[in-house]
Design a protein around this nucleic acid. Structure first.
Lengths: 136, 136
DNA sequence: TTGCGTGCAAAGGTTTTGCATGGCA
DNA sequence: TGCCATGCAAAACCTTTGCACGCAA
């Protein structure tokens, strides 16, 4: 089942890839791609397909009990580094640095815990939001 | 609104606190505390109240699209260390060690990212499951 | 022409809420 | 006596699915 190149699919992918630092609810994506709340089914279908390809990632927003989707793209092998997600602006940083690897090694050596970086997300406040918003 | 000491509430709390290494769905808790699937509303009400007190934590199980609840208790200040959750058995480890603090410091110094340890969960496979299950 | 994509509506499943009753303090 | 807890049912909510039609290849 190879995906066809259709207008709806293109618009969705273009919208998400143009905002890789942000995450959106299904509803927001519907509105952005079309102009309405309707036509959800196609959007959901695209999103789940893109998630299985690891082009898009799902995040759970416990505040609103909604799933949020974010573009990740083919750029990286996300299984080998941690991710830091900003609780204020939603920005996702790929911590592709040595210390990630080192910390993962520590977890394995000291705690016997084999961490799956790809699924492990560190939540906090990013540099820009700290500068802008005060505290934390 | 201080909670009364009622039989239902006591049973729920006792069940969860007796199994701090495990996580349960609302349905499982209903069955364990009562003998049926019914009486959900009280269970949900207790759980959300306990979550706001940080006695219990919620986890999202993407596989089943259900929320799972796990006892954390008053024992610790979970804001100051990371948590490692086993994807196989559900065990939650509190990584209350120096390296957690060190890694958090690195994130702040090198990436400007102020991590909220309490919300950051590292997923992987724990020592026991690695020994038992092979791979990973 | 084949078969995936789309849209609408309806279903599915979990969680929340309203309301009357019961129990703790 | 006052207020919270409980149970049931219904609602709310997000997400998935069925089906007929449309469109890409």
């Amino acid at each position: 089942m190879k995906p066809y190149k259709t207008a709806g699919r293109e618009r969705l992918l273009e919208f998400l890839s143009r905002n890789p630092d942000q995450h959106f609810t299904a509803e927001e994506i519907c509105i952005a791609v079309h102009g309405a709340t309707a036509r959800q089914s196609s959007v959901y279908r695209h999103l789940s397909e893109l998630c299985t390809r690891d082009v898009v990632r799902k995040f759970r927003d416990e505040e609103t009990a909604k799933t949020r989707y974010q573009y990740v793209g083919e750029r990286c092998d996300c299984r080998n580094h941690f991710h830091a997600k900003c609780l204020r602006c939603g920005k996702l940083e790929h911590l592709d640095c040595g210390d990630s690897v080192e910390f993962a090694g520590h977890l394995l050596a000291e705690h016997g815990f084999s961490v799956d970086c790809g699924q492990s997300i560190l939540y906090g406040v990013c540099a820009r939001c700290r500068a802008a918003g005060g505290l934390a």
